[in-house]
Structures are given as structure tokens and as C-alpha cells.
Design a protein around this nucleic acid. Structure first.
Lengths: 207, 207
DNA sequence: GTCTATAATTCGATAGAC
DNA sequence: GTCTATCGAATTATAGAC
């Protein structure tokens, strides 16, 4: 349904406005949360009036859903790239390490989209959560498979359930956004490596 | 400022109603979040009309703040009791284990107050968060001290920052409420022990 | 495509009867 | 102490001019 009869720059103009709205929405959602993010403020950041948003989107929830969906996609892309870089033959241990560093880096340095997803998903309407259930489930399943592959090749212990470890690892990583700047004197790479090292190698002292 | 000139049963009546409102608010807040929790619904659960709430509280935020404060207190009490049970002379390793099991157990099977605190704190107004800053900071500091004591007595490794591990441990534990029922076939005690074992002993396979 | 103006709800909060 | 009734503010969404 691409309007090929229109001039190319006219197509780009419409797309650019749409992108500007999504960028603005991501920024406000990441900062204020779902309920406190008003269309008036989103429009202001996008340098528009609130009513104008409805030419590009059907509703507030349509905007929110697309922002969260992009956020999930960005995170998955970052992890995919890191796993590709570390190679297919790496151990599950090394793959998990690489994925943790990549994801923590992505959600702290990257766009507002991933942060909007982390902050707003639980608060968003039931319909929105249901529409995003598939990509979010695949995101979680990716971590489970990563841990299971390590359990199969013997680089990770197999007496704990991968599902449980995955859930808690995701929650711990997502929380980093909320405090790493406040704790002071912490680099994001340092936090990511400290975290990966603790989950993977544990907190106990072997000596 | 206790109204000692009133009959005892009259005092209890007022207190009971107040408690009923807080119980109702905790239930709705834990289930719906801050913004979606309306005074109409809280009042309905408490078997009242919305306007009647204002005889007992000054505002919605006053109700929310007290619910969250009670939630923090409940959690701290549960941890204190567990640490007392394990004894003053236990290693930092054993104390951390006991605290994790106690806290995860408390937030999953205890009252709605702790769950309301976990779910609504970030979403609540700035003034509410500031009013709760002290008890929440002490809650976090308790975990930091627990980990540091293990680092001092040699039962926990000391090449990672206790602040960082504490933050991530808290986030991971808080997340349990949101998924442990959905994952199926999991007992809360099993989750708590699996989690404590992973954080403390790590995911790596030593063999 | 964007604006202004406003309709339609919803919700927190208040007032006054009982 | 609780109820009913209602105010006032905020917000999503729509209508129509330009």
C-alpha cells in the first residue's frame, strides 16, 4: 500500500513526522511513565499541537504500543549483534556474558525506546500488553535458550531452572537504568561486567 | 494526642475503619498500580462511598503514602526476624541466604502492602517518593551492609561493589511477584532457594 | 497536514444533609 | 461518620477552518 504515485520527498516528509512523534513519545514515556505521559506534552516535544497527532495515529495507545514494540526490537537487535560477534562456537558461558553486557549497554546508552518499554509495559493497558505478548515472550525465550545452551555444554550448572534464572536476570538488568547514575563513580561497562561476573561466577568466595 | 476521653470501643471503631481503607487501598494498588487505582474502587472494596474516605484521609496521595510505608515496614520486619533466627554469629554468606529467602517469601505470600510498594513506588508522585526516601534508603542500606559483612568475614568475594550487587539483588527479588505463578510448577520456597543459591554460589560450573 | 476549539469522560476533592 | 450531589481540573478524542 505504499503510495508510489507520490513524489519521493513527500513520502519521506510524512514518515519523518511520524518518526518525530515516536521519538517524542519515547522520551516522555521513558521519563514520566504511561499514565503521566500526556498527549499535550508528547506533541509539545514533537513541536506540534495535541490534536495534530491524530492525523498520524488513531489513539494514544497506538502511539504507546509502537514505541514499546520498537524498544523491544532495539534490544533484541543489540543482543543478536553481540552474539554474532562472539561467534557460533562460543560456550554458553561466554554467550551469556556477551548478551548481558550488550543488553545492559543498550538500555542505558541507547534510545529512549528500550527505557520506555521497561518502564511502561506493566502500566500499559491490557490490550497493549496482549498485542506485545509475542515479541516479549520471544525476548524472554532467548535468554532461556542462552542459559540452556550453557547447561548443555557444561559451562553453566544445570541444577537450577533456566526459566527462573532468565526471569531474574532480566529484572536485574532492567533495574540498572534506574540507579546506575545515582550511585556515582560507576561506568556502565563496569556495571555490566560486574553483574555478568556475579550471575555467572557467583558471589561466594572459593578460597 | 490519643482521645482518651472517648469510650474505648469508639476509638477502636475509628481505627478499624481506617485499617479497612488501607487494606482496600493496598489490594487495589497492588493489582492496578497507582494511576489506575481510583478512589471509587478503593472505597467500593472498603464498602464505602468515595467521598467518605476524606473523613479519614486528606487525599489520595496520603492513603497511598501510608500503604507504601506499611509495605516497607512489613518487609523490613520479615528480614529482621529471619536474621534474628539465624543468629548474630552466622557468616555473611548464611545471613544473606536467610534474608533472601525471608524477603522473597514475604513479598509473595504476605499482605498486599509489600506488593503495592514494589509496584507503585516509581509511579507515585515526587512528593510521595521523597517522603519515603528515608525508610527506602535504609531498606537498601540493610542489603549493602549484609553483603559487606560477608565480604569482611571472607564468605563473599570482595572484588565487586556491594552497592551494585544489592541493587540488582533487590530488583531480581522484587520481580518474583510478577512471574512465579505464571511459570507453573514452582513453589515459592524453591524459587527463593534457587535464587539465593545462584546469586551466592553463581551459575558457573566448577567441575 | 496542522491548527483552534470543544465535546465527552473521568477523577480527585468539597459541601451539606442526615 | 457516611451519604449524595456536584464542582473543577485534566485528558483523550473529534470537528471543522485554513
Amino acid at each position: 500500500m505504499t503510495p508510489t504515485h507520490l513524489a519521493p520527498d513527500r513520502i519521506r516528509k510524512g514518515e519523518r513526522t511520524r518518526t518525530r512523534i515516536l521519538d517524542a513519545a519515547a522520551e516522555v514515556l521513558a521519563c514520566k511513565g504511561y499514565a503521566a505521559a500526556t498527549l499535550t506534552e508528547i506533541a509539545a516535544v514533537a513541536k506540534m499541537q495535541a490534536g495534530s497527532l491524530y492525523y498520524h495515529f488513531d489513539s494514544k495507545d497506538a502511539i504507546v504500543e509502537e514505541v514499546l514494540r520498537v524498544g523491544i526490537d532495539h534490544a533484541r537487535d543489540a543482543i543478536r549483534a553481540a552474539l554474532h560477534a562472539v561467534g557460533e562456537d562460543a560456550s554458553g558461558h561466554d554467550k551469556l556474558m556477551a548478551a548481558v553486557v550488550a543488553y545492559v549497554t543498550a538500555i542505558t546508552i541507547d534510545s529512549d525506546f528500550t527505557q520506555a518499554n521497561i518502564r511502561c509495559f506493566e502500566e500499559s493497558p491490557r490490550a497493549t500488553r496482549e498485542n506485545l505478548a509475542v515479541p516479549l515472550r520471544e525476548f524472554a525465550n532467548g535468554w532461556v535458550r542462552l542459559i540452556e545452551s550453557g547447561q548443555r555444554d557444561g559451562s553453566l550448572r544445570n541444577d537450577v531452572e533456566a526459566r527462573v534464572i532468565a526471569r531474574m536476570t532480566i529484572a536485574a538488568m532492567n533495574s540498572v537504568v534506574g540507579w546506575w547514575r545515582l550511585e556515582g563513580q560507576l561506568t556502565i561497562d563496569g556495571v555490566a561486567r560486574m553483574f555478568a561476573s556475579t550471575v555467572v561466577d557467583g558471589l561466594a568466595n572459593d578460597t
